[in-house]
Design a protein around this nucleic acid. Structure first.
Length: 284
DNA sequence: CACCATGTTCCTTG
DNA sequence: CCAAGGAACATGGT
């Protein structure tokens, strides 16, 4: 589920549901999920606390809770990893098989489901300090972005995944932004002209903003069991999903026709990840 | 069995 | 110290 747009959509969806709810109990099922904090520390910090805010930084969720009256706020950093999802379920609904963390909120429970357990739910918020600029906050390419590109001979696609250059892009939207900018994913980062750098930055913003507008890849599906029902998100909309399915320009479309010129979209592997591009629209 | 998967970190090498 | 490449993490889908 997880790049900047998915996290943004999720945060907007969760905020009103969590606000002013009190955490009655906490279960973090795996040590890895709370690392480098421990499940016990997370439990101790959150039990009895009230949700007062939820924000996003890049792909991270930042939960703010108020323990008792007048005490300092507690902040929990959440990250979805590759397969993380977060949603509320009615109290009677059993948690899913790979529930990395479950918060008892009384009438319902907050579930952090994470099949591959690459995600985080921790008191250690240091990761956000290392992040580069937030793409939707600046219209012109920030110095960190331009300089970061300039001093790297790596392919520009690979550099776009470096969270210190621009924070929040992942494998899908990196390919999408390069397509929109008309830049080859193989171009060495330092070879970008100033014009291309500006173009790329604007394309990143456009791709991310548009994705947020359409709900990113999050699909809310009705969830029903014998013990209750609720809404949860399902990544990669199943056929029966009612919401409009997002169109990617190139991601996952190898062999299909380019929406711009009709030529075949290609797939290549860079830094052990798939890149998708149109060889005709994206030249040097 | 083989290969693929929206992410990050750690280790090695130069 | 830095850049770059690759493996590792863990589970499931096709």
């Amino acid at each position: 589920m997880p790049e900047l747009p998915e996290v943004e959509v999720l945060v907007r969806h969760l905020l009103p549901q969590l606000l002013s709810k009190v955490v009655r109990d906490v279960r973090v099922q795996r040590a890895r999920t709370a690392a480098p904090s421990s499940p016990a520390e997370v439990r101790r910090a959150l039990r009895g606390a009230t949700f007062v805010n939820l924000t996003r930084r890049a792909k991270y969720l930042l939960f703010d809770l108020q323990p008792k009256k007048g005490s300092k706020l507690v902040r929990v950093l959440g990250h979805l990893g590759m397969t993380g999802r977060m949603y509320l379920l009615p109290r009677a609904c059993p948690p899913p098989k790979h529930a990395a963390a479950v918060l008892d909120l009384g009438g319902e429970k907050f579930v952090f489901e994470d099949t591959r357990y690459f995600g985080r739910f921790t008191l250690d918020i240091s990761a956000v300090e290392k992040l580069g600029p937030e793409p939707l906050e600046t219209e012109e390419p920030p110095g960190d972005f331009a300089r970061g590109l300039k001093r790297s001979s790596q392919a520009v696609k690979v550099k776009l995944l470096d969270q210190t250059l621009v924070a929040g892009l992942g494998n899908i939207y990196a390919s999408e932004a390069l397509f929109l900018a008309g830049i080859s994913p193989r171009l060495p980062a330092r070879k970008l002209t100033r014009v291309q750098t500006v173009q790329l930055w604007k394309s990143i913003r456009k791709v991310l903003a548009k994705a947020i507008e359409v709900g990113a890849t999050i699909r809310l599906a009705y969830y029903e069991t014998g013990k209750g029902a609720g809404l949860r998100d399902t990544a990669w909309a199943p056929a029966e999903a009612p919401s409009p399915v997002e169109r990617f320009y190139v991601y996952g479309r190898a062999g299909e026709a380019c929406l711009n010129c009709g030529q075949g979209i290609k797939r290549l592997v860079q830094a052990a990840r798939s890149t998708f591009y149109c060889p005709n629209c994206q030249r040097r």
